[in-house]
Every structure is written in C-alpha cells, then in structure tokens.
Simulated scan of single mutants.
Amino acid sequence: MQPTLETERLILRAFNLADASRVQKLAGNIEVASTTLSIPYPYPDGAAEEWISTNTIRASNGEGFPFAVTRKDDHALIGCMSLNLSKPDQRGELSYWSGKPYWGHGYATEAAKRVIQFGFEQLELNKIMAAAMAKNPSSSNVMKKVGMKYEGEFKQHIFKWGEFEDLVFYGLTRADYEQLNR
C-alpha cells in the first residue's frame, strides 16, 4: 500500500483515476513533455488512465511509488514525484515532472526531499539516483538542491522526437544522506 507523505506545502498521495484528465493536461504540455524521458506528445486520450492503473499495481507490489504532488492549500494536482525500486540492489530511481504553471516555486525540490527521506528511512534503500536530459538544467538543479552528487553524463543515450539526447546522472548514497541529516 502506498503511503501518503506530507511537507510544509504539499501532500504526496497515490494517483487515482479521477486525476487522469489533470495528468493529461499538465504532462501533455509540450514544454513539459519535451524535457522528460518518457512523456509522449501529444498526450493520447486514455494514456493517463492506463499509466495510473499500471502504477497502482506497481505500488501495491512494492516496485515503485508514483506520488501525485498536490498543494495543501487547494489540493491542486501539480505534478508527479516517483521512486522506482530495484529491490535486489536496494536502489531507487527518482523521476518527476511538474506542470508548467508550477515551475519555479520550489515544489519539485520540496517533494523530492520528502520522497528521498521516505526511500532511505522507510524503505531502507542504499542509494537513490536520478537522470535528466542534459538540456534540462532545472531538473539537474533539483537533484543538486536535495543533496545528490553528479555522477556522469551518457552522450546520445536516448532517442526522443527524432534526436539523440544526452543524459546526466546524479546519486545519493545512504551514508551521504545520513551525513547531510546529522
């Protein structure tokens, strides 16, 4: 069962099918989709419902936790913060997107900090990593702000929308997390 997490301004909860139209609208924005690894554009009808259903199963199996990031004050769904697990490696991969109207407010950083805390303190992971397109420095900045360290760049690692894209990788080990939180 997926927990609900809270921060000062946010509630991170499981997605439900009622979120589908909002997911399609926010994630389907070309500026959001163009800087993510796997969000399609245009965002097809029915894809949000399928994604939510698949992620509900993954969360119930403990394979990953896609959190709907919502504001406490108005309960607006503003994005997604996911932690996908590799149980044998005791590792999680953080991935996220925010709707364009919510860029620049620190929501992604706030949500990422809380999900990282969940990963290390509740799931007892040894490492949490994240990847971003090199052309998306805002995503890299989130990773840096939560204490992740740059681990390298994979040149032309993915093929998106007819072009090869470079990916940058960041990571945080349990030991480094504990050092940061002393």
Results as ranks from 00 to 15, higher is better:
143 M>D: 04
70 T>I: 01
148 M>W: 11
114 R>S: 03
165 E>S: 04
38 S>A: 13
130 A>Q: 02
110 E>D: 07
76 A>P: 00
38 S>M: 07
81 M>R: 06
78 I>N: 02
28 G>T: 10
110 E>H: 07
50 E>T: 15
111 A>L: 07
60 S>W: 03
146 V>K: 06
152 G>S: 10
8 E>C: 08
101 P>N: 07
95 S>I: 00
178 E>V: 03
153 E>F: 00
86 S>M: 09
20 A>L: 10
4 T>P: 00
157 H>Y: 13
144 K>S: 12
35 T>A: 04
168 V>K: 11
30 I>K: 14
133 M>A: 10
168 V>Y: 01
108 A>S: 12
1 M>I: 05
123 L>G: 04
91 R>Q: 14
115 V>I: 12
88 P>N: 08
144 K>T: 15
27 A>K: 05
25 K>C: 03
45 D>N: 12
55 N>Q: 13
101 P>I: 04
129 M>C: 13
167 L>E: 10
26 L>P: 03
121 E>V: 08
12 L>A: 04
110 E>I: 07
115 V>W: 05
165 E>H: 14
15 F>H: 14
12 L>N: 03
125 L>N: 08
173 T>V: 11
125 L>A: 09
13 R>G: 01
20 A>I: 07
138 S>M: 08
73 D>F: 11
41 Y>H: 15
7 T>D: 05
92 G>A: 07
166 D>R: 08
10 L>I: 06
97 W>S: 10
70 T>C: 15
126 N>S: 13
107 Y>P: 03
96 Y>C: 09
45 D>Q: 14
4 T>C: 09
16 N>M: 03
27 A>V: 10
136 N>V: 08
99 G>V: 02
24 Q>S: 14
112 A>K: 03
127 K>L: 07
173 T>Q: 02
97 W>K: 05
182 R>K: 14
112 A>I: 05
74 D>Y: 02
94 L>Y: 05
65 F>Q: 03
56 T>D: 08
110 E>K: 10
181 N>M: 10
150 Y>P: 08
109 T>D: 02
142 V>M: 05
95 S>W: 00
93 E>K: 07
62 G>I: 12
97 W>T: 10
32 V>A: 05
46 G>Y: 06
21 S>Q: 14
88 P>T: 09
118 F>D: 01
82 S>A: 15
85 L>H: 06
142 V>L: 09
130 A>I: 02
58 R>L: 15
101 P>T: 03
9 R>E: 02
152 G>V: 11
88 P>M: 11
23 V>L: 06
57 I>G: 00
160 K>C: 09
28 G>N: 10
118 F>W: 15
173 T>E: 02
156 Q>C: 07
24 Q>F: 01
118 F>T: 01
74 D>F: 04
124 E>V: 01
143 M>K: 06
13 R>K: 12
